[in-house]
Design a protein around this nucleic acid. Sequence first.
DNA 1: CGATAGTTTCAAATAGTATTGAAAGATATG
DNA 2: CATATCTTTCAATACTATTTGAAACTATCG
Lengths: 168, 168
Amino acid sequence: MTMELREAKDKFIQAWGAFGSQWGINRSMAQVHALLLISPEPLSTEDVMEQLDISRGNANMNLRALIDWHLVDRVLKTGERREFFQAEKDVWKIATHITRERKKRELEPMVKLLAELKRTEGTGTDSKAFRQMATDLHDLTSRIDAVLERSTRSDVQWFLKAASTLLR
Amino acid sequence: MTMELREAKDKFIQAWGAFGSQWGINRSMAQVHALLLISPEPLSTEDVMEQLDISRGNANMNLRALIDWHLVDRVLKTGERREFFQAEKDVWKIATHITRERKKRELEPMVKLLAELKRTEGTGTDSKAFRQMATDLHDLTSRIDAVLERSTRSDVQWFLKAASTLLR
DNA sequence: CGATAGTTTCAAATAGTATTGAAAGATATG
DNA sequence: CATATCTTTCAATACTATTTGAAACTATCG
């Protein structure tokens, strides 16, 4: 037996929220994102507040944060005073933006630190072991960095994705 | 100018802790891991407590958690009553274990849910849009899942890594 | 301009997580 | 088996992050 739309949406919002918080993204932000993702129409702050049962301040702050991350756009409706919000619907774009942001904010500083730590002084066993560890970690993180960079920048892949969407 | 060993170790432990907590791993656990990573010798609970200035309970709980994750091994020294702990030093293995665990615990359930949500009832625009979104997300997460699976299981890569370590 | 509709801010409250430390539980030792 | 040494547990506490809601702010309209 298949599911009701309402129920399915709720399940998705809850799951997305839980998933996000396991990865260091706060629950409300992930839920707001989920809600917008599955709304065919842009929503107002009021809509978000009601549907997720969160406060105005919370809704506002997380909407702004999502805009910062380029995951959500403000849209204006003619004849409407208030702002509406809509999520970027292309999941490939979403993944790209999140990856880029986190890479820049978190991975790159770590790579930089490790590169620095490889240059520690000392000739004792401890120093050597430490440098080896720093080197290994640096290699690994650099490789991860490179993979993300590649998959983020790959124009070929981007083109294929765009094409497959158009041809769907 | 290069750095003192002591200073470098501290920097690394602090950074690893901060990095971990951005990714949903608690600071102490990441710090304990960092400390063991850069210790040439296995450490006792007492050592960990002292060096990180944390309580016995905290040290014990995080050591156990790290053992759970297969990132740390208990080792026994002959003639010593207490247990010592040592981190898996091969960073490739570490990355593999973490990836596998998180994939299993977090990504797979999400893929499963999305597969289910694709089967929502209804013929309205909303239902269709929702199914489309679930489908897109399912495609993406499945692809991520596949990539992780590949890089986790790749015996070729494993062999190359092992070989390069031996030949270093 | 004054009223109205909407947005943003932020201090305080709440909820969630991590840490401590003392006590209980194990295990080895003489 | 009594003692010493080490490990584990867990209720209390401290700490951090999130959320609220009311007030301040801004823009629009007649």
